[in-house]
Simulated assay, not measured.
Amino acid sequence: MNTLDKEFKVAVVIPCYKVKEHILSVIERIGPEVDAIYAVDDKCPQNSGDYITEHCHDPRVKVLFNAENQGVGGAVLHGYRIGLEDGMDIFVKVDGDGQMDPCLVKYFINPILNKDVDYTKGNRFHDIDTLKPMPKIRLFGNAVLSFMTKFSSGYYNLFDPTNGYTAISAVVLKKIPLEKISKRYFFESDILFRLNIAGAKICDIPMDAVYGDEESNLNIKKIMLPFLKGNVKNLFKRIFYNYFLRGFSIASLELILGTLLSLFGVIYGISSWSESISTGYPATSGTVMLSALPIILGVQFLLSFIQADIENQPAISLTRLLSNHR
């Protein structure tokens, strides 16, 4: 562990919903590097909060209750808020269903302790051999969601966006609007978008995919459309914030020119094709070029913009820049 460990208070937040059979085992495996454990009963029908209070005697555990079910994001945000009030410096989010090994906590917090990054996230796709137990529909769904989230969040080097095993610095947590973050299954992807807007540096932590007798509440088929809508919305917001509202660069011009040229070429091409069909006269070579050339140039401009966007990922840790030197 880092030599600065004792200067930082580490908290684990566990959203609890239908995890009664596994929650005590998860808490028992949380190591001494953690100072506080916030178990959030998200209006669990199994009364997991009361169960933890009755059967868990770990002095680090504080049981929190949501008056109504808010989803995984709502439960985690509740834990974040209470932890900030208690003066915690790093927050690790661990699910209560046993799919996340608490022994990995130290690997998630070390890059933040060293102030190299502001946020770490698990990646189950690092080792292909460990993916064999993962259901094929989840494997495909995660691949699609990862592709969408790369564009919407601006973190192109990350994968496995629905992975909820994360750690975040309190310094950057205070810089993002917690009240605006999605409280349901889009929580992990939405917080990546918020982190990019804040300029936070993040990284993936390799981990194995673990599947036992636990029942997942995540249905890939049901969440695919909401995830698509959310990612498209965040993509447009991120581009507007980063390339037009807060700054204007060559990449901004490339995006404008690429979009306008591509639209002109497509619209003019469709119009000319329709006219050619209705009149029976084939389009001239000049008409074809007037449609094709703007599309070719437009695509080149858009590709240049994407390349610039990839290179524009946050490179400096806000935790290093903004935290007080102790």
Rank of each mutant, 00 (worst) to 15 (best):
T162M: 15
V172Y: 07
K136Y: 12
G164S: 09
G87K: 06
L178E: 10
F159Y: 15
D86L: 15
A143K: 14
P102F: 01
M134P: 11
E179R: 05
K183L: 11
Y165P: 00
T149R: 05
D116A: 10
K150Y: 01
E179G: 09
F151R: 04
I168Q: 02
R184P: 08
P177I: 07
F140C: 13
A167F: 07
F108N: 00
N142Y: 06
M134R: 15
E179V: 04
T120W: 02
T120R: 01
L139I: 09
P161E: 00
M134S: 10
A170P: 09
L139C: 13
V94Q: 07
K180A: 12
L84E: 10
K174H: 06
K93C: 10
N110D: 15
P177F: 04
G122S: 06
I112H: 03
L173Y: 03
F108M: 05
M88T: 00
V117E: 01
P177Q: 07
K93F: 04
T120C: 05
Y185H: 14
D116H: 10
G79H: 03
K121F: 00
K150W: 04
I137C: 12
K115N: 09
L139T: 15
P135E: 03
L131D: 08
A143C: 11
R124E: 12
N114G: 08
K180N: 13
I112Q: 06
L158G: 04
G141W: 08
